[in-house]
Write a protein that binds this DNA or RNA. Structure first.
Lengths: 134, 134
DNA sequence: TACAGTGTATTAGCATGCTAGAACAGTATC
DNA sequence: GATACTGTTCTAGCATGCTAATACACTGTA
């Protein structure tokens, strides 16, 4: 499981790790019962302090995506796929709603907003900076 | 011109002020040649330090929305309406694109994403927390 | 000129929150 | 038991950036 992390930018590294793991599990890239990479391995891969990865993994455990067992690594939870699908939906829904709420508040008309959405979608598909590859 | 400011939350006050003024001007609520409320008046209305308002107003001047004249207040620029329409479009476009890019990266299908957008839009129109009122 | 309004500039405080360092604790394997 | 891997905890540093305090500079009006 290779993670792509933006070391600059406003979104914290641990959050990026959480999101990417959730997306991978939701896509079936990490099966329940298998282990995700250890904290230290991921830390090396991402070039970041193990604590930062640990924080991400703790969040994942809190959400029921993985279960931690000392000395044995962290295992993908049995019902992780369903959970991650739900988490993914919630996360994306929340982001979209925030952006759309701003769009409405700006005074733009509904047709204008829909047009912007369509344009953005084709733009993203034309030059995808991150197009899911499991 | 009454501004609605969220004192808590992640988005800085000065940014909220900038956005709201831009939206108002774009909607034609403040005509070119007229003055926007003074820094201190707005500061009182919004219950915030004048410096915070000043920072917002400076940004507005930098963007060519208003012109400042010492002792005389800040006047809406002649071509402010067109500028603000453009600024509004850019701002909303940028936010939408960020959210949609995340949606695509999450692995959700395009139909799923479109469905989420539609659902969010009806939800917003059902319980609008900020529906433009000039 | 005095005054009361305007915007401007500088500085400092402060909260927030991410990240790192380092030591601790459990488990498997040899 | 020794070792090498796991996750855990505590503490502190540190950057970031928003906000506030305060003093300054300009303009119109009485």
């Amino acid at each position: 499981m290779i993670l792509r992390i933006q070391h600059d930018g406003p979104v914290p590294i641990y959050e990026q790790i959480v999101a990417q793991v959730v997306y991978r599990v939701a896509a079936g890239a990490a099966a329940p019962g298998t282990n995700i990479p250890s904290i230290r391995d991921t830390a090396k891969q991402v070039l970041v302090n193990p604590n930062t990865v640990a924080r991400a993994y703790q969040e994942l455990e809190r959400q029921g995506v993985v279960v931690a067992r000392r000395g044995m690594g962290m295992e993908v939870a049995p019902d992780a796929v369903a959970r991650c699908r739900e988490l993914r939906l919630d996360l994306v829904r929340q982001r979209l709603e925030t952006a759309l709420r701003e769009a409405v508040a700006s005074g733009l008309s509904l047709p204008d907003i829909r047009r912007l959405v369509d344009e953005a979608l084709v733009a993203i598909n034309h030059r995808p900076r991150t197009k899911e590859k499991n």
